[in-house]
Amino acid sequence: MKSIKINDVFNEKRSQDLQIKLMAGQNGTENVVKFGDLNRPGLTLSGFFDFFASDRIQIFGLGESAYLSSISDESKENIYKQFFSYQIPCCIFSHGAVPDDSFLKYADSSNVPVYVSLIGSTRLVTMLVHIFDEIFAEKVTLHGTLVDVSGIGVLLLGSSGVGKSETALELVERGHRLVADDMVTIVKTDSSLLMGKGSEMLKHHMEIRGIGIINIKEIFGIRSVRRKKRLDLIVKLEEWNPAEEYERLGLDEEFYEILGLNIPMVKIPVGPGRNIPVIIETAAFNQSLKKSGIYSARELDEKIKKWISKGE
């Protein structure tokens, strides 16, 4: 199971975005979180410690801050003592509300980092949810080439030497956009969505046998590339194999599973005289049609069935 240190969650860039500052508990910034769930501890602060989700990041909104400043010092001490007896990964105060000295002292001695953000609670929570989704998203690196073909994210798979890079090059020539060649990182950004991107280091470089390493962005310009793209279609390029049955009707759909999601797949045999880029373009357009509910093979089949039943 993945875990991340608090100070890696709130790195320099994210601290800037979240407008947060560490107020206490410096020694606790090495604490780790294993999931990105958040908790508003309002009820807990009022003394109800049952079901206290202490292992989550605690968000103190205006309500919590106002409550704490309304109670007597004595009851505060009692609450803080009990509150910090739990293993809390970190506390964040929204709206720039700075907690009182006693709170900070308890946080310091129990090694719980306390941050203050200038942002309001709702927006802060939304931003944190996005950050943790990104951190804890499942990902996998595949050997393939990802191209945006007229808005359809097409991942080319196939063994080395089958011509993935050459096919991608021809697609770029035809006005489509390269996302990544040979090494594609797929991130499950949502329960139903896979996003593909390339390595930061290789960025739009490609190896073409006979030429060597080329930079697609420099050769074809900025519009020939894009940084990331949703995965819509898998195209499996295969050496023509007479024993394999290739799809002839298109009535049934084949799928390829990545990170538990099924992505539509077409298998395309590579052989002499076959213009693979045009076939891939067509497969992408066909996928686009299917997404809008138009299944050409099924429609033709329906027409034929109707014609047959009329007995003409």
Partner: peptide, 24 residues
């Protein structure tokens, strides 16, 4: 045969230059 290079659970195709370079 299929050759795979693995660094920190990231797999690269040993027959692809870009893939091997991508492992950094």
């Amino acid at each position: 045969c299929k050759v795979t290079l693995i660094k920190d659970e990231v797999e690269a195709d040993g027959k692809s230059i870009m893939s091997v370079l991508g492992l950094a």
